[in-house]
Design a protein around this nucleic acid. Structure first.
Length: 287
DNA sequence: CTCAGCTCCTGCGGGC
DNA sequence: TGCCCGCAGGAGCTGA
């Protein structure tokens, strides 16, 4: 379940393998993920140099030296696996061997520096597409996505204006990528817990002061998660180069029935289903 | 415009 | 032990 922090961590982890490096060959092992690939995608990738690798919302963007950018979404189960590259934190100490290909290895980037970056996605909710770099903001997948929650455009006045008049639950509103980019089911639950707002509360009925708290809680939640991801990257000692998931410690997500972590609170974390997705919250702390 | 519900896909875990 | 069922969820799509 890669949300913004996981995608950010994957992006950072891919930098040594991909940024500034030419794609010697792009290998598509099937013709589609969620949608069909452009028929000439492999040819358009092969030989291109990755000028910059960056993240927008839950998308990885690789700007190529040919004026195009590769758009990658990890969907639900997408992972990037690096092999054949010296471990970045122990330069030259050992090299990841190229492992045998596995089921669901759908796209392989053979990089000119000897690295191999493999996109593996069992559920195939992921996506890849190529688009002129200057047209990225009007690409159907990216057009209409809201501001980055860690950027300057995301602040309490903005969020208040977008929530105003909306009768839907705040949980659903924060999952709406047009309002704010990059949040998913996990970090929405976590941010609402930190701001003591019930996931069931109508989005348009949150006092201004609490929206201020909420914007800060969203930023803090994501910043903490990115830091945790960065630590897991630095502490990386395994030889398999797999990026995408790391150890989390969640305050409410997945803790149904457990004691609320708020000091002195006797509440139990509750799970409810909202728009067919689980929300976790403490009914005593969150109103 | 807003909003709820359905859909895609595979792996996994619970129940029998 | 094996089989079936339901669930997980990002986000586009449909229809009210």
């Amino acid at each position: 379940m890669p949300e913004l922090p996981e995608v950010e961590t994957v992006c950072q982890g891919l930098l040594p393998a991909m940024e500034g490096v030419r794609i010697a060959r792009a290998e598509l092992r099937r013709g589609d993920l969620r949608w069909p690939f452009a028929p000439d995608m492999a040819a358009r990738l092969t030989g291109a140099r990755v000028v910059q690798l960056r993240r927008r919302s839950k998308y990885l963007l690789a700007d190529l030296d040919r004026g195009e950018s590769l758009i990658v979404h990890l969907g639900m189960s997408g992972r990037m696996v690096i092999s054949g590259l010296a471990a970045p934190h122990v330069p030259g100490q050992f090299r990841f061997e190229h492992p045998a290909l596995e089921k669901h290895d759908h796209v392989i980037f053979h990089m000119e520096n000897g690295a191999r970056v493999t996109f593996n996605d069992p559920r195939r909710f992921g996506a890849m597409d190529l688009c002129a770099t200057e047209a990225l903001e009007v690409h159907p997948l990216l057009a209409g996505i809201g501001p980055e929650p860690l950027g300057n455009e995301f602040h309490a006045a903005y969020l208040a204006s977008r929530l105003k008049g909306r009768r839907t639950a705040i949980k659903a509103a924060l999952l709406d990528q047009r309002i704010v980019a990059g949040l998913g089911n996990i970090y929405v639950s976590e941010a609402l817990f930190r701001s003591r707002i019930s996931p069931r509360r109508a989005a348009g009925r949150i006092a201004a002061a609490r929206i201020e708290t909420l914007t800060q809680a969203i930023r803090d939640t994501l910043t903490d998660a990115i830091e945790a991801g960065g630590s897991s990257l630095r502490d990386y000692r395994q030889a398999n180069g797999e990026l995408g998931y790391f150890q989390h410690s969640f305050r409410v997500y997945g803790r149904e029935g457990a004691l609320c972590v708020t000091p002195g609170c006797p509440g139990e974390v509750r799970r409810i289903v909202q728009s067919a997705r689980s929300s976790f919250y403490c009914p005593r702390c969150q109103r």
